[in-house]
Write a protein that binds this DNA or RNA. Structure first.
Length: 448
RNA sequence: GCGACCGUAGCUCAGUUGGUUAGAGCACCGGAUUGUGAUUCCGGACGUCGCGGGUUCGAAUCCCGUCGGUCGCCCCA
């Protein structure tokens, strides 16, 4: 009995067919290589955690954004991980005093959030996490920014395509205090600033007023928030552009010096409107944005000193970054940097495509494919019934094979035709020598 | 959780004020031919018009619901 029932992938999830999977592997590979080259070590944790791990960090309000569950008959609440930082903090805490400092870890896990899908946001996604434990400001931040920039660079992006937009919560807090915001209201002011560009101007002014800012102060704050200056500008120049005294910006100077030394300045912009929503961030905060401003943030991060002790570990400074695959893919596709055809061109190319024209040669073609594979070549076989050479070569060309091995009547005498599908040239070779012939031609041929 | 727009073949779409058996191009599969990636030709599969209900003599078309997609809001770790 066959079922007529059909199934769809759950809302906000993706099916990765071979081309999409090739694009995904490409992204993961760049992330992984950039991390390793920067001295980070790969880790992974469970796909789900105790629900408490997330509520202790983010409050009960987070539960509505989670996929949480309880095993039938069980008593423990779990949640699919919506982010990696709590897992990382837990893993670091579990090592306690034995954790070498600094520790540099990265991970490329899947995450789950029970949100309404929209552009750049899905319910299941990949997020590259890069974290440094045990380094203070700004050394940890620069390690992370360097890894992020290296990856972005390897994707083919330039400082004209994307910028790391940085700010410093201490600098902004100093500004807020100078404008008349009481110390107790600074966290609330951060929340408001996080929504600066999403709120209508009069609504922003009204809420700012509730925090103790008078009309003139709101105007000065607004003026200060909308500037974005190259990070190569000194604190004095940035303060001048913001229309404020230089003193509050003193805290960004060490960061600038380190970025200059690491030759990262051209990738970085000072943007006071970057505050990040999370209450636990302190100090330097940053997001990677496409310069056109069309997409959501490609990545975000900051310092979260105190989080590891919150989950029972030692009190260690830490900072990190998360880069999601969804917005990144949009940015790369917009620029043709992820294969024009949804990843089709990123599929692995066969070294050889074996065609048996003569029915007698079919068993021999199986042995040839086996010998090529044992020699480390990516070899494929035609499973088509047709003996139409044109069609078979078309198949070879369609799967982007580099060479075709054609077996005709000569195969019984141990000979085959090796055809270079890029140049069209072909030679007759002894079947016994095929793996070696292919290897030398692949080595001498064009790189791509 | 809230709102807007959209769902016809694998893809892009057509389908008259509601009217017989829902169409085209491309793609796909099998084959023929010139045996070398092309061209041409023959043949094939292909849809419960997202799903369910309602109105009607009659629904792809109108109404309601639902599921999904897209884009916003909330949130953004």
């Amino acid at each position: 009995m066959t079922s007529r029932r059909t199934f769809q992938a759950p809302k906000g999830t993706r099916d990765f067919y071979p081309p999409q999977m090739a694009a995904r592997r490409r992204i993961e590979e760049v992330w992984r290589r950039a991390s390793i080259d920067c001295g980070f070590e790969e880790i992974e944790g469970p796909t789900f955690e105790h629900l408490d791990l997330y509520t202790v960090k983010s409050g009960e309000g987070i539960v509505s954004e989670l996929f949480s569950f309880r095993r039938a008959g069980g008593e423990d609440d779990y949640a699919l991980r919506p982010e990696f930082t709590p897992t990382l903090a837990r893993m670091a805490a579990a090592k306690g005093a034995s954790l070498p400092l600094p520790t540099k870890w990265f991970a490329i896990p899947t995450h789950f959030r029970a949100e309404r899908p929209q552009r750049g946001r899905l319910r299941e996604f990949l997020q590259w996490n890069v974290d440094v434990i045990g380094l203070g400001e700004p050394d940890g931040e620069v390690e992370i920014i360097e890894a992020a920039v290296l990856a972005l660079e390897r994707f083919g992006l330039t400082p004209r395509d994307v910028q790391v937009r940085l700010s410093h919560r201490e600098a902004i807090a100093a500004l807020l205090r100078s404008l008349g915001v009481g110390e107790a209201r600074v966290p609330a002011a951060f929340e408001l600033l996080d929504r600066f560009d999403r709120l209508p101007p009069d609504e922003f002014a009204r809420r700012a007023g509730e925090l103790g800012l008078d009309e003139g102060a709101v105007a000065r704050l607004r003026e200060a928030m909308v500037i974005a200056r190259p990070m190569s500008d000194g604190p004095g120049a940035i303060a001048a552009a913001m229309g404020i005294a230089a003193a509050p910006l003193a805290s960004i100077e060490p960061l600038q010096q380190r970025l200059r030394a690491s030759e990262l300045l051209e990738w970085c912009t000072f943007d006071p409107s970057i505050v990040r929503g999370l209450a636990y961030y302190k100090g330097i905060v940053f997001e990677v944005h496409e310069t056109g401003g069309a997409e959501r943030a490609v990545a975000g991060g900051g310092r979260y000193d105190g989080l590891i002790s919150l989950v029972g570990g030692p009190d260690l400074p830490a900072c990190g970054l998360g880069m999601g695959d969804v917005v990144l893919s949009l940015v790369l596709k917009d620029r043709g940097l992820l294969g024009e055809d949804e990843g089709e061109s990123l599929l692995p190319r066969p070294d050889a495509f074996v065609i048996a024209l003569d029915p007698e040669a079919t068993p021999r073609s199986l042995a040839i494919v086996r010998s090529l594979r044992r020699a480390g070549h990516h070899a494929r076989l035609s499973h088509r019934a047709s003996r139409n050479l044109g069609k078979l070569l078309g198949d070879a060309s369609k799967c982007r094979a580099r060479f075709a091995v054609i077996l005709d009547a000569g195969a019984s005498e141990g000979r085959a035709t090796l055809k270079d599908l890029a140049s069209g040239g072909q030679v007759e070779v002894a079947i016994a020598n095929l793996p070696a012939e292919l290897a030398s031609r692949l080595a001498s041929g064009p790189a791509e």
